[in-house]
Simulated scan of single mutants.
Amino acid sequence: MVDCIIKNWQGEETGQATLELKVAKEENAAHIVHRALVRQRTNGRQGTASSKTRSEVRGGGRKPWRQKGTGRARAGSNRSPLWRGGGVIFGPKPRDFNIKMNRKERRLALRTAFQSRSEDLVIVENFAAQFTKPKTKELVLALSRWGVEQGKTIILILPDIPDNVYLSARNVPCLKLLRADSLNIYDLLVAEKIIATPEALSKIQEVYSD
């Protein structure tokens, strides 16, 4: 269980929130988080790299010269991998890089990663009402009031993403918006600061509790 300080729009402390998630045992935590991270990064690969073998390269149907009597090495096609313009030996072909991982293990890794970042977690009161229209400058000023330095990699976790908040945040460098029910382990580990609302925190504990 971790206690987090709640800040308001002005950056003043207004209360405390509790983060309580079922996490992996200390001796297994690094291993399971690493597996989940490798799975996410690997599953993101398209696997569409492809090269042509000698049978797929256009041309090469005619024997370049007769078998004997020329003094040159015998050749059956000018699309041999030994020739310029020929096929590729053991080149890449489309493949599936996906790694499987049980749903419970993925959830456990995500909870473990999230709770391990508790020192970099900033809880702020719901501020959607502050944005009656898109205003990037207001959001940047709010981030500084919440103690987040400019240039830091930040993820902002909300239960839902209002249009005005999205439009205000999309031009802020190094800031990424995430829904509380759509977290991923890579963003949690890469972010230098994590900002969430109490509602988002409750949703995280509800969605990822099992």
Rank of each mutant, 00 (worst) to 15 (best):
A30F: 04
I204P: 10
G71N: 07
V190R: 13
L143Q: 11
M101L: 15
E138R: 09
R41V: 05
A169L: 08
P92L: 13
K104H: 11
Y208N: 09
V190W: 02
I6A: 14
T112I: 06
S51Q: 12
E26R: 13
A180F: 12
K137D: 14
T153Q: 14
T132Y: 01
L110T: 05
A73T: 14
I154A: 00
I157D: 07
E12S: 13
K22L: 14
E105M: 03
E12V: 07
G15D: 12
W83K: 12
R41E: 09
A73P: 14
I195P: 10
Q150M: 06
G85V: 02
G151P: 02
L141E: 15
F114N: 04
P173K: 14
G11F: 04
G91Y: 04
K7G: 02
S55Y: 03
N184V: 06
V190K: 14
A142E: 07
L121E: 02
K63M: 12
A180L: 11
I89N: 09
V124M: 10
A30T: 02
P92C: 08
E13Y: 05
T48E: 09
K152C: 01
F97Y: 15
N78K: 09
G71F: 05
E192P: 00
K152Q: 10
Y208C: 06
R84F: 05
R179E: 15
D163G: 06
A169C: 07
H31Q: 13
C4M: 12
R39E: 09
D163L: 15
A200D: 07
N78M: 06
A180Y: 09
I155P: 05
I6R: 13
M1A: 12
K152A: 07
L108H: 09
T18F: 10
T136G: 04
V165Y: 03
I185H: 02
A29I: 07
L37Y: 01
R179P: 05
K22Y: 05
T132P: 00
K104F: 02
F114A: 02
I195K: 04
E192W: 00
E192I: 00
K100V: 06
T53M: 04
S168D: 11
P94V: 11
K176P: 01
A109L: 02
L156E: 03
R79T: 08
A75G: 02
V190M: 06
G87V: 03
V207D: 05
R117F: 00
L143H: 00
G71Q: 04
S144E: 13
I155F: 08
T132R: 13
R45K: 10
L139G: 12
G151L: 01
E199A: 15
K68L: 12
E206V: 04
V88L: 10
I6N: 08
Y186V: 09
Q16D: 03
T70P: 07
L183F: 07
R79G: 02
R72P: 05
S51N: 08
L21K: 03
W65Y: 15
S50E: 11
V2Q: 11
E149F: 01
E105D: 06
P173M: 11
W83N: 11
A169S: 15
